[in-house]
């Protein structure tokens, strides 16, 4: 699975970066930024799903692929 952020919907609320600090950080404006690739390792899938569920703008997605 890989992370997909709908940048047109994202408002920079920052929940995803808090819930997935392994994969994301917030930039200076509060918008999520991938630390490396957008691939989600197996052991972080659950945390990623939680971040998808908690995004207040529904901008955060898990998409198939790597």
């Amino acid at each position: 699975m890989r992370l997909h952020i709908d940048r047109t919907a994202c408002d920079g609320r920052g929940l995803c970066a808090e819930l997935l600090p392994e994969l994301l950080e917030s930039d200076e404006w509060g918008f999520p930024m991938a630390r490396g690739s957008s691939g989600v390792p197996e052991e972080l899938t659950r945390a990623a799903r939680r971040a998808v569920d908690r995004c207040p703008k529904l901008a955060f997605h898990l998409a198939p692929g790597s």
Binding site: R7, T8, C10, W29, G30, F31
Partner: peptide, 8 residues
Amino acid sequence: GQCGPCLN
């Protein structure tokens, strides 16, 4: 004006 990183 839609995407934060571009807009900022």
